[in-house]
């Protein structure tokens, strides 16, 4: 019995000590070092404008739809997409009808209606991408432009995707294509150590750079 009580004491005390050391001292130590050494990054790599308003995070995608902006990847984060408080992907599988062709609810007369069940499939996203970027029916579309990312907040698009969008932006902003492509290159995050991962164009940073031109 005495041994049993010792064990209980060991279990309870170790839980409390671990809580203090691993859940108190440790995160606070990391917090202190991080706030001093990497203040900007530890606080979300925020982008603020002249009067201090937060315009976004360099690491989180925002929605862009007009012609003068590069568009982010489609998003399934939250009900609206690009919801920073509700990251996630579609989790639709490779043989999903919904993922491939989408869902478009119709009323009794066969007309499209708004419905929470509506969903743009890859087919719909491809059609929209081709139309807005003046592509032919037979042109292949970059996969990242018509698929939703895992987090729904992927800040990047592929270089190929940016190249296809660039003429649209150049036209809308009355800029030379080469000027736009320069900015694309300047806002491309390269592969880690030259070989890790895939280079990607940071859409928010690029669009803000475009805005600051004018």
């Amino acid at each position: 019995m005495k041994e049993f009580l010792t064990e209980i004491r060991g279990a309870i005390m170790s839980t409390l000590i671990l809580a203090v050391v691993c859940c108190g001292a440790y995160p606070v130590a990391v917090w202190a070092i991080a706030q001093i050494a990497f203040h900007d990054k530890a606080n979300g790599s925020l982008i603020t404008d002249a009067d201090g308003t937060i315009r976004g995070s360099r690491l989180l995608a925002q929605s862009f739809s007009s012609n003068k902006y590069f568009q982010s990847r489609p998003s399934n984060a939250g009900a609206t997409g690009y919801d920073g408080a509700s990251s996630g992907g579609t989790n639709l599988g490779p043989t999903s009808e919904k993922l491939a062709n989408g869902v478009h609810m119709k009323n009794d007369k066969g007309k499209d209606v708004d419905d929470t069940g509506n969903f743009d499939g890859i087919k719909d996203l491809i059609a929209a991408y081709r139309t807005s970027n003046d592509l032919k029916e037979t042109d292949e579309v970059p996969a990242d432009a018509v698929t939703r990312s895992a987090s729904g907040l992927d800040p990047h698009i592929s270089v190929r995707n940016a190249e296809l969008q660039a003429p649209r932006i150049a036209k809308a902003r009355n800029l030379g294509l080469e000027r736009v492509m320069e900015l694309v290159r300047a806002n491309t995050d390269g592969a880690g150590l030259g070989i890790l991962g895939v280079p990607g164009v940071n859409v928010l940073a690029l669009n803000l750079a475009l805005d600051s031109l004018q």
Binding site: W31, T53, G56, Y69, N207
Partner: peptide
Amino acid sequence: VFLVSQGMVQNLKANDTAKLVEPMKTTI
């Protein structure tokens, strides 16, 4: 600490709110 140097957050503040560069119209 290495992870923070890559851009991972480590803070105890409440969530921030960003003013979107382009407002998003959506039907939900």
